[in-house]
Simulated scan of single mutants.
Amino acid sequence: MPQKFSTKSVQSLSRRNDVLTYSPWLAPIVWNGTYNIDILNAQFHLRDVRIGLTTFAIKKYVMFLKDFLETAEKFFMVGHKVNYYVFTDRPNDVPNITLSEGRRVEIINVTGYQRWQDVTMRRMEMIHNQCAERFIKEVDYLVCVDVDMKFLANVGVEILGNVFGTLHPGFFGASRPQFTYERRPESVACIPVDEGDFYYAGGYFGGNVEEVYKLTNFCHNSMLKDKEMGIEALWHDESYLNKYFLYYKPKKILSPEYVWNDYYGSPAAVQVKRFIGVDKNYAEVRFKRR
């Protein structure tokens, strides 16, 4: 029987007048107060969806995995079925975490590349390959995020849709000339100075498996074309992601609540910090050696 909701529960949803809540192409921008999670949860439970969360714990980055998984169990898709897909070159170092019913950790063994830049560049290829080989058979949606983060508040089905990107916390209040797009015209990732809608974070994107396959395929093949020319885009996979979203608009956009870093302070617009970067010494974790 379909679940019923009172008019009061629908009307209790607050409105946001302090931020942009729709893109020029009418994609919703998800902020705190712009959705009713009870209604959305009921819809997704009826469909019995399973969500995949991908992350890369390569070399020293495996140190962030315990906090990542433990906080995900508290705040990520609570009450829904989840597969945690951990891409790692250190499977023996993946921590044993107590999981809720219907949730599991899946380890995917990968090569540990010498440069951290190579890891970020190759993850598009690896996600793309796994979409075709297993993700399409195992999950309905994919959420692809960085591992050196932790969850601080609920992240639920409000983020799910056909394909979504996330506003970069350093640029959500900036104008187009300030965006650090790849500008060299010889690069496939190039975005001309008079184009661009938003600047999206490379460490948080997703959608249904078919759309993530298309996105990662574009990014991976674009990187290969640039590599043949001896070009490495300014911000690696993030540059190609921004190019993809320029011409293939996301159907949903997440606010920077979903990929915050305290380096950017606490602006009033960001009422909740849901997923946040952890403090780290980049000189230690960005590796050239094991």
Rank of each mutant, 00 (worst) to 15 (best):
F5N: 01
S6H: 10
S14W: 08
D18Q: 08
L20I: 11
T21P: 07
S23L: 03
W25E: 04
G33W: 02
I37Y: 06
A42S: 15
Q43P: 00
F44T: 05
V49K: 09
A57G: 09
V62A: 14
V62I: 15
D67A: 15
G79L: 02
D89S: 14
P91A: 07
D93A: 14
P95V: 07
N96D: 12
I97A: 07
L99K: 02
R104Q: 15
R104I: 04
I107F: 11
W116E: 15
R122V: 04
E125K: 10
M126H: 13
N129T: 12
Q130C: 15
C131R: 13
E133F: 10
R134P: 03
V155R: 04
G156R: 08
N162S: 12
F164M: 01
G165E: 02
G165W: 01
T166M: 05
G170L: 06
G170E: 07
F172M: 00
G173S: 10
G173D: 10
A174I: 02
T180Y: 14
Y181K: 05
R184D: 13
V188A: 01
V188L: 06
V193R: 10
Y200S: 08
G203P: 05
G206H: 11
T216F: 07
N217C: 14
M223S: 00
K225H: 02
K225N: 00
K225Y: 01
D226L: 09
M229V: 04
M229T: 00
G230R: 08
G230C: 01
G230D: 06
H236R: 12
K243I: 03
K252S: 02
E257N: 09
Y258P: 00
W260V: 01
S266A: 14
P267L: 01
A269R: 04
Q271E: 15
F275E: 05
Y282K: 12
R286M: 13
R289P: 01
R289G: 10
R290T: 11
